[in-house]
């Protein structure tokens, strides 16, 4: 459908409300944060308006570089784990009976209702030595004695994947349901086993959806700051943890704001790179 371009100022009327919401709740806070990131910290009080780069300068150290690197690495790993698990799962789900589909979707939605804190403590219990899953392995005779699985990188990764998986499935689900089932049938008649047809037809046909989902989970995981603290060692803390720490416990708002702005910029840069790479791949 073709629509006429707005002619008069009043034609923009319907935009007033969303624009107002966006400005009040997104542009203003974000602008404030950018401004604060250039303010000068006042050790005795809070901060004083100024225009200094020292918050950013302090950030350019090996320590923060490592934290930033780890945060990005963790988010990418979580995103890849989610995609690797969710694409085959959602594909099978979309081909299952209606009842099975509803049951699984309800179960996944109920995970969404759990708060990050509950997820964190549930997994820390499951990974503990005294009450954790290793006790089951001992009972099955696989292990000699129960061990603690947290704090560790694996524990952080597992819990964050668990938390992000329902989002991944729910985003992929509509695209997979819409995928023409005769495509895989055609692949099978042409000599591809079901697994081969999944990798040569389903995955490539859904490339754009998969890349978009990857970016979504990546950004989602980048904001996680509770799970790394509950389940990880200090070297597993993400930039989000440090930002929270600076903002709330050290009362260093300008520095926290600078880190947040930097994180946003890096994220935007990575997303842009992914999109450009995707375009290139498309054209080739």
């Amino acid at each position: 459908m073709r629509r006429e371009a707005p002619q008069k100022l009043t034609d923009y009327g319907p935009l007033v409300f969303p624009a107002g919401m966006l400005i009040t709740f997104f542009v203003v806070p974000f602008a404030t944060m950018i401004a604060v990131s250039f303010f000068k910290r006042n050790p005795s009080g809070f901060y004083t308006p100024d225009f200094v780069f020292e918050n950013y300068a302090r950030f350019l150290s090996l320590f923060f570089g490592k934290v930033l690197g780890f945060s990005l690495f963790l988010a990418v790993t979580v995103a890849i784990c989610c995609i690797v698990l969710a694409v085959p799962f959602t594909y099978l789900l979309s081909r299952a009976k209606r009842r099975t589909q509803v049951l699984w979707l309800v179960a996944l939605l109920s995970i969404l209702s759990l708060s990050e804190v509950i997820i964190g403590f549930a997994w820390s219990t499951l990974f503990s030595r005294t009450a954790g899953i290793t006790n089951l392995l001992v009972m099955l005779g696989i292990l000699d004695q129960p061990v603690a699985l947290n704090p560790s990188f694996g524990a952080v990764l597992t819990a964050m994947t668990y938390q992000a998986l329902p989002y991944t499935v729910l985003v992929l689900y509509p695209a997979l349901v819409r995928l023409d089932p005769t495509l895989t049938e055609a692949a099978r008649t042409l000599g591809a086993s079901p697994i081969k047809s999944f990798f040569t037809v389903v995955v490539p046909a859904l490339r754009n959806t998969i890349v978009a989902t990857l970016i979504m989970v990546f950004i989602f995981a980048l904001g996680s700051y509770l799970l790394p603290q509950i389940l990880g060692r200090p070297q597993h803390w993400t930039l989000s943890v440090l930002i929270t720490d600076q903002a709330i416990y050290q009362s260093n708002m300008p520095f926290a704001a600078a880190m947040a702005v930097f994180l946003v910029l890096v994220t935007l840069g990575l997303v842009a790179l992914t999109v450009i790479a995707g375009r290139k791949g498309e054209a080739a």
């Binding site: 023409d180 495509l183 049938e185 055609a186 046909a205």
Partner: peptide, 10 residues
């Protein structure tokens, strides 16, 4: 196939 089922990504 009736819908032809050509692979759209190829």
């Amino acid at each position: 196939f009736q819908s032809l089922a050509l692979f759209p990504h190829l």
